[in-house]
Design a protein around this nucleic acid. Structure first.
Lengths: 189, 189, 189, 189
DNA sequence: GATGAATGAGCTTTCATTCAT
DNA sequence: CATGAATGAAAGCTCATTCAT
């Protein structure tokens, strides 16, 4: 039962964290929602903080696995579309986990997990691709930080928008449009 | 002295909220930081929640005042640049207040203040301008929600980036670049 | 205005005390209900305790004035009826003040004002009358404390009953019955 | 050991409540008097209010168990004496619990537990007996409410008197006298 | 007299964590 | 492994009282 209960705790925690916030969720409520005893939580996790970190790690790993690398022989734009679609797809099919990552990224209590941590996680190949694109004269010659920042924010806000308004997500036109806004924005003119 | 102490409380609260988070900041610490007694906080604010809301309101009003409307006779692009610069300027010169707004927008405890609340606050004229631009064939014909979402996220992330890396903010090229990414992204092709 | 505000405070206090209890009523609420400032209460009364005592004293004096002594030439039973009716009448026409006296009498915080304090207040002549009655063989020869106790309790409970069920109070038969139960109970057989 | 601590808390609470009043007794003092930690009180009782209600319920049940029903074949007067003695005996042997019931009955904060709740608890059979007595012409034909009220108040005041003056309680004459006052008061003439 | 901002001790309640079973 | 009673520090909030104006 051990693995089961540990997983039940993680599931219950995720569920409560995104509803009420991390701080506002008492460990006792997590245990109750998981159907285990109060002390069992501390049997599997040294502290509430450790539980949060374990959950964070789990989700990061799961997301990383979903991000298959693009075929390097494809044109740059196609490679980027591949990354973009994989990231968006994961965000839309795991809205709770996605929101948890957002929450952590904005929580002053967990400053280690900066915004960029999430980006580099979702799109670890992006920096190289951008550099390639700039060298090849396909992308505009602005600072990396600015371009990465834009990619990141467009990714986050697109998933959020599509999660809130699922009817938009259903139309593939808009999925494409979200990428095009980004692409034409950073393309060289 | 009433106004003084009330303001001291708001100042201390803002300072602590963005350092430690809202929940993690005890009312007693706010009072201490403000140099007043514990009960004084509750003399001026009915509850911690009321203090947060008062602070929120103050900042929103202050930001709204900073957002001067553009000259409607200017070309669309110039009007948008006007808005963009006013918003960025305010964000950069009030980094704490800006961060507080971000925090609230992402806090599941204060769901009323959605992301879009902040946007419509900073750029209340934007929806009309976009509609005009689409009618005139200047902007691409994507759903309003998508374009607004992009503007919003680019605004937030640009202020954050420039606040974290002030050397970027100093170069007016990059301020312009951040707007151009947005503009060429949503411009009609 | 001084007398007025002081009286307003006493009135407001009485009203709130019987609704919520003495302890549960904050001085600030009394002041607000009286339409005066917070500090004004302490201008007229040294402390909350002093306010309670002043109210108590006022009510006791008012009640004492309403208790006109019976004609000593009347038969014993008529004298007792006189006292009984005066007491009941006062209780029914001042239900709030009556209830306040009850509350104080049962409050462990104000132990000075025992049950008997209220009795001797309402019916100061009663002990003598009882003694006379016993000497004359009209009343049973039980201990004074027992008879006084019975009179007292029948008085309190009758006013309470009639206040709760005003339709009973309207029928003079029942007013008389309440006295008769008492009288035949303690009469000599 | 759970039952032990829970009971210790109830005992300590009863003791302090009747000395200082319910409101005036801090939960921290109850915990200290019970020899447990502050939080333990709230582990067993959801709130102070819940503790009060649990205590109330406990005492009511205990009292109800002590009230053995009379033999219905006995004459009416004997049945009433049986009830009277059982009630008085319980009140005298549990003075704290009796006083707590009185306190609650008079506390405007707990209005549900009216005076009559206590009576019907102590003497649940009384209403029927009275009706029987009136039909048989043994008891006077006054409204039930009036007679019940008298019984109730005589019961309460007798226990109080005997508790305050234990020397009276020792003389069985006076126990009988207290009942006789009641009986002759309501007997048909 | 009258005001109401200011105080700080004290209240009820919460909660992460421990530990004997 | 699992439990849940027990802990006590700390939280948000209340309130009688003071005092400068």
């Amino acid at each position: 039962m051990s693995l089961t209960k540990k997983q039940q705790l993680l599931d219950a925690a995720l569920n409560l964290f995104i509803q009420q916030g991390i701080q506002a969720t008492a460990t006792a409520k997590i245990a109750k929602a998981a159907g285990v005893a109060n002390g069992t939580l501390f049997h599997h996790f040294a502290s509430k903080q450790a539980l949060v970190e374990a959950l964070h790690l789990n989700i990061k790993e799961e997301m990383a696995q979903a991000m298959t690398p693009p075929d390097p022989n494809l044109p740059l734009r196609e490679q980027m579309i591949h990354l973009w679609q994989a990231a968006i797809r994961w965000g839309l099919s795991h809205p709770q986990k996605f929101q948890f990552l957002r929450q952590l990224a904005n929580d002053p209590q967990y400053p280690l997990s900066q915004q960029h941590a999430m980006l580099s996680l979702a799109l670890p190949l992006l920096p190289q691709l951008i550099k390639q694109g700039q060298k090849a004269g396909i992308l505009a010659d602005w600072p990396q930080a600015l371009i990465l920042n834009t990619c990141h924010s467009q990714f986050l806000s697109t998933v959020s928008l599509f999660t809130e308004q699922p009817e938009l997500a259903k139309d593939p036109t808009y999925q494409q449009a979200a990428f095009d806004i980004l692409w034409y924005g950073m393309a060289h003119r």
